[in-house]
Design a protein around this nucleic acid. Structure first.
Lengths: 108, 108
DNA sequence: GTTTTATATGAAATTATTATCATATATTTG
DNA sequence: CAAATATATGATAATAATTTCATATAAAAC
């Protein structure tokens, strides 16, 4: 294979960085609990940590770690209201990914 | 939070399994090299292992492992032609995921 | 059937992710 | 400001993913 566009892209630093970033975002959503959180927030607009813990029947610190993970990757945003910290989807495009996976025939 | 649809879903075994499966597929695509392979195959229809190695400038066994990973998860399919093994996208929906990530404003 | 070429496999070392527990911080209430 | 509540943080242990290297298999050519 000679000098295709693809060859160009792969040797291009920007392209490589874009792949790294995309993989980084995708890692955020490739976890069942984080998918469940996204799914919940698609439905409920915003929820605080405890509400999420209750619905998912998981420990607080476990959920907190995942929430912070999603926030760090730009998928969620948070806002404090008194003692509570509310989380909401920041990047709604992420729900497209989830739906896409749900509808595709991969593996399964 | 009382008995929302979400609560129902999360306690539903099928729903949990669907989350696990979705996460499993998403893991396949959350790796820069695997994303690069998918991207290549979006453009070139089918390529053999050596062609992919050359374009991506990676070792054969390294690429083989990733190809088999993608095949196992239903994203690629392979067909032998003599000594060569050709890989192609099986699940083209996966490219939607990749494009979605490329266009969304997550993190970055 | 031996050699060559392309690909797959397996084990081992490295690195990253996940889960858990204990504790810290921040806010509100008395 | 002490107590209570909600959440975050950090360290650690457990597990899983990645990479590399050596070798096996499979098809083709001689």
């Amino acid at each position: 294979m000679a000098n295709t566009l693809a060859t160009y892209r792969v040797n291009n630093r920007d392209y490589r960085e874009r792949l790294e970033k995309a993989a980084y975002i995708l890692k955020a959503v490739s976890h069942p609990v984080r998918l469940a959180i996204i799914d919940l927030l698609e439905e409920k607009e915003q929820l605080n940590v405890n509400e999420i813990c209750e619905v998912l029947e998981c420990e607080q610190s476990f959920i907190s770690h995942h929430l912070i993970n999603l926030k760090l990757r730009g998928i969620l945003q948070s806002s404090r209201d008194g003692l509570n910290m509310y989380y909401a989807l920041k990047e709604r495009d992420v729900t497209k990914i989830v739906n896409c996976i749900e509808n595709c025939g991969c593996v399964m």
